[in-house]
């Protein structure tokens, strides 16, 4: 399972990439693989405040609907409209074309509660066994 370096991860398989005062967020390769074919994505509206570890988006696969949780608190400044029309991009490119939203970070200290790439790699190896 692909884990990208230089970004943070949650227990619920979201990733967040810090870009200055902003953060780009999405779900991991492990998450898309577990869900299977993604068929629907609901994203928050621009301007909405999302809170760390609270639901901010929904993804549906053929088999199930799942909540997606915010890795950090912040205001949504950009959403990936392309992904809404082509949910399959999440399967093919979870870390690049499959990003969900960009937020203006509220408090960067919150990243202390997240895993780095090597910790997340260990984490998914453990839950796979």
């Amino acid at each position: 399972m692909n884990v990208k370096d230089n970004q943070f991860y949650t227990n619920e398989h979201e990733w967040v990439s810090i870009e200055g005062s902003k953060a780009r967020i999405g779900i991991t390769d492990y998450a898309q693989h577990s869900l299977g074919d993604i068929t629907f994505i609901e994203l928050p509206e621009i301007g909405k405040k999302i809170e760390q570890f609270k639901q901010f988006a929904t993804v549906e696969s053929v088999k199930a609907a799942s909540d997606v949780y915010a890795p950090l608190t912040g205001i949504v400044v950009e959403v990936n409209a392309t992904l809404v029309n082509q949910p399959e991009l999440l399967n093919s490119s979870p870390y690049e074309e499959g990003w969900f939203a960009v937020i203006e970070i509220d408090n960067i200290e919150e990243s202390n509660k997240l895993m780095d790439a090597s910790a997340y790699k260990k984490y998914i190896e453990e839950i796979a066994h």
Partner: peptide, 12 residues
């Protein structure tokens, strides 16, 4: 009955 949704969202 059968029903069809006006979006990609799935009833379950």
């Amino acid at each position: 009955v059968g029903f069809i949704v006006n979006s990609r969202r799935a009833p379950r």
